[in-house]
Amino acid sequence: MDKTVPDLARAVAPITDGASVMIGGFGASGIPFGLIDALLDHGATGLTVISNNAGAGDTGIGRLLKENRVAKVICSYPRSPGSVWFERRYEAGQIALEVVPQGTLAERMRAAGAGLGGFFTPTGYGTRLAEGKETRVIDGRGYVLEAPLSADFALLRAEAGDPWGNLRYRVTARNFNPVMATAARHAIAEVRHLSTQPLDPETVGTPGIFVQSLTEYGVRP
């Protein structure tokens, strides 16, 4: 089996206008900057971007926002230092925002990837973020029903990968990448080292079954 593609451009070629795209990373760690730049060159627009943050500065998701490729952002924390392009688009009413608590964001992806129809969480119970959602009291405690969250594509960053699509992560660059791999119908990884030999199975963070294609991008931000 060989899931490798020769370059970033071919990796993002399947992404269509209006697609929903999960993008790994937290802060600047674990963000697939190479794939995002390739997506900009590719030209897809009207995207729904699902990520923890809404970009910083003129790079990564910030650049997608700057060039007006994003119709909607689903994230937990859009207000990081330097999120100027998100704030500009938001204040101008050019972008839709869905704020999701970070753990609920991860668990909604996990549910989608694991084939679950949703879950009851205590997070957000009684707050504005639970308005309109089904609630239930279980053993005396209030819970909110949250729906699974899948996406058409996921753009991932990993330290190493092999032709079978197995990925290995490094330090806190792991973050959302593994759970997004499970929740997307087509997960694309950029890896710092593409190994022609299989990764040590003990070190695999994302099993290759969750990854549809990968390509090498050696730059570390």
């Binding site: 937290f26 802060g27 600047a28 760690s29 674990g30 923890n52 990081s80 230092p81 970070q102 753990g103 964001l105 991860a106 668990e107 992806m109 996990r110 992560y169 490094r170 330090v171 806190t172 660059a173 792991r174 973050n175 959302f176 990448n177 593994p178 759970v179 963070g205 570390r220 931000p221």
Partner: peptide, 27 residues
């Protein structure tokens, strides 16, 4: 280490006995 940060996005180190994990485990 540009990939080793905390939730405030500050550079940190790993203390003895530390572990790394993904978001669903973290939450």
């Amino acid at each position: 280490d540009c990939e080793l940060i905390d939730a405030s996005k500050r550079f940190v180190t790993a203390a003895p006995g530390a572990s790394y994990f993904e978001q669903a485990d973290s939450f």
